[in-house]
Write a protein that binds this DNA or RNA. Structure first.
Lengths: 211, 211
DNA sequence: CTAAGATATGAATGATCCTTCAGTTTTGGA
DNA sequence: TCCAAAACTGAAGGATCATTCATATCTTAG
């Protein structure tokens, strides 16, 4: 893919007065709302400004492009997810296989559901801009954490912990994503809550060569 | 989401002479190439026409919008996948759990890989247009086929075959998707080939109450 | 060979949208 | 109270694009 890469992602100016901090936050949530209701393709700077109750110019005082705005939002969301998962991993260190599987699945679902709105809104941004750098950083952190976690499970040797962690991360991320993207009836959500931990556990039990 | 839904998807005119059939095919492949190299956001009618070696007007003789063109491509791709999976399901009827798990995972990977180019290209379209109708039709067919398949596995009772089929479909689709979308090194592909069948099998073994 | 239908062309139209900047308003400290 | 810095405004420039249609070229049946 040859999509626009991040040019200058950082805010052009950091808010100094309370007033502007409020403005930036308003722009932020307006963007997410519009993203969710109309998708990336329909997201225009004017609409964001209007929804946020400010003028277009104001937006450009804090973000050099539309891109930068979208990147800022993605970054915040990724940080949230990664933090949540790292915390969970810490808590699960040394637990047995079932505990780890359920813990990871639950942590992932909780993190996604906690901000289900932004999560769903964001999935589309990747299609329009090149997020690989941002994503990869998060992915590496996540896989690393999972690997350490797996290696710390007592009585369970993994032949190739890195591959197992890779697969588990893909499984978690992918499964939740497709379900969230496809309408997602409440019914589907319940099913996911119930089945995702099982899928993780099933996979881990299969690849763990018990000693 | 409130994205544009399919208006008039069907070709405005069906090619009658050999010449025009060639043209339509050229437009088709040009679109996929551009989609893959630059993403949806960069896909313009002019560029498609140029790449296909025809003029813009020609494109509009067969598709009423850009939308219709994209939908036609998605539809073709979905049909291919669904057909491949239904065929595989037929072949696997009556096999044991391991055989079914491996068969489904392999069939899914093969189908995606056979046309890896279009597969990757297409993932972005969903962000811009409302594909839920198209997708749901495919999803229902797929889940149905998997459910029947599961019920036909000897010596393995599933408490809730529908939920299991739902989860398996999400797992297959999601996992492969995230891996394909994230750059996808050859290394990642090998890992997926190896681990996806295991993940399916692990999950199925766990939820199958052996008799 | 010829006419009618099929197919192709691409400049022009109109709409949308990002981004800028000259000017206005607000804020907070002196 | 007063002013310099901080914020905000929004019309206008400039670019990109989807879509149309009048015109030209090609194909084939008769």
């Amino acid at each position: 893919m040859n999509r626009p890469a991040p040019d200058l992602l950082k805010p052009r100016k950091t808010p100094q007065q309370t007033r502007s901090a409020v403005t930036v936050e308003a722009i932020h949530t307006a963007t997410i709302q519009l993203l969710l209701s109309d998708g990336v393709a329909r997201l225009t700077t004017t609409r964001v400004a209007a929804r946020a109750g400010v003028s277009v110019g104001t937006m450009y005082q804090y973000y050099p492009h539309k891109q930068a705005l979208l990147f800022a939002i993605v970054e915040r969301q990724l940080d949230m997810i990664v933090t949540a998962m790292l915390t969970a991993a810490e808590r699960l260190a040394g637990c047995d296989l079932q505990c780890v599987a359920e813990g990871l699945a639950t942590a992932w679902l909780d993190a996604k559901m906690a901000d289900i709105v932004s999560s769903r809104a964001i999935y589309g941004i990747a299609a329009e801009f090149d997020l690989s750098e941002l994503m990869n950083r998060a992915k590496i952190l996540l896989i690393d954490a999972i690997r350490s976690l797996l290696e710390a499970v007592p009585d369970a040797g993994f032949t190739d912990p890195d591959t197992t962690a890779f697969m588990l991360a893909a499984l978690l991320g992918g499964t939740v994503r497709v379900v969230m993207e496809s309408g997602m009836a409440d019914d589907d959500f319940e099913r996911l809550r119930q089945e995702l931990p099982r899928a993780c556990l099933g996979y881990l039990q299969l690849v763990a060569s018990r000693q």
